Amino acid sequence: MQWRQRRGPAGIALALVLAAAALPLRAQDAGELEWQWRAEPVAGTHDVELVFTAPIRHGWIVYGSDFEAGDFGPRPARVAVHAGGEVLQPARSVGAHARSDRNFAGEYRYTYFADAATFRQRVRVEPGAREVSGVLNGQSCHEESGLCTLFRAPFAVALE
């Protein structure tokens, strides 16, 4: 009986208010990162260095790539190449900040970006390949709310 009473105009108004309150955070969803990428040749080799960059919305951070994932806590960024080349070493975080946190199981050290993120990944190019493609996977969090999202950014970089 109570449910039927709340489904009236007051119940609908409450539902609309709650939905509207969720919109600002959703609009800032870090999953909306706009990644750009390019390939830089490594002199004297058949390698390229893939460079991934993205601006980060105010209040959000993107976790770096140069720490180990634990059972709990942030997930480091990783690059997987599916065609055109072979990953030679882990991705590097360029200009990342370092932080330790006791909220995770014990002392946990990780790297992160605020404002903008840059990752560099060295790749051995397959003979005759015209592009390198794959995916950049990572995690971002809104510092104030604690909301965290995983991102998956497919890429295809043309080779010259």
Rank of each mutant, 00 (worst) to 15 (best):
G70Y: 01
S133D: 06
Y63Q: 01
P41T: 07
R124Y: 01
L147I: 10
D47T: 01
L23R: 08
F104N: 09
G128E: 09
L88R: 12
G106K: 08
W35H: 05
R38V: 06
A129K: 02
L88Q: 13
L25M: 13
G128W: 09
S145G: 09
E131T: 03
Y112V: 04
V62G: 02
E34W: 03
T149Y: 10
A10T: 10
R99C: 03
E32H: 14
R38K: 12
A116S: 14
E86Y: 05
G95M: 08
F67I: 05
G128I: 08
S145H: 07
G59K: 03
A156G: 06
F52W: 03
A80N: 05
G128T: 05
V48W: 01
T149M: 14
R124L: 10
Y63F: 15
R7M: 14
R130V: 05
M1N: 11
P76N: 12
D115Y: 01
L136A: 03
R109Q: 14
M1R: 12
F119A: 09
L14Q: 13
Q139Y: 04
A19T: 11
L88C: 08
R6I: 14
G44S: 13
P76Q: 06
E86Q: 14
G64K: 00
P76E: 07
V125Q: 03
F113V: 02
V94T: 10
R120L: 08
Y112P: 10
L136Y: 00
W35D: 04
A129S: 15
G84N: 06
W60E: 02
H58T: 07
W60H: 08
N103P: 01
N137T: 11
A153K: 13
N137L: 13
E131N: 10
D66A: 12
T53L: 09
P41W: 11
G134F: 00
S145W: 06
Q36D: 07
E49K: 14
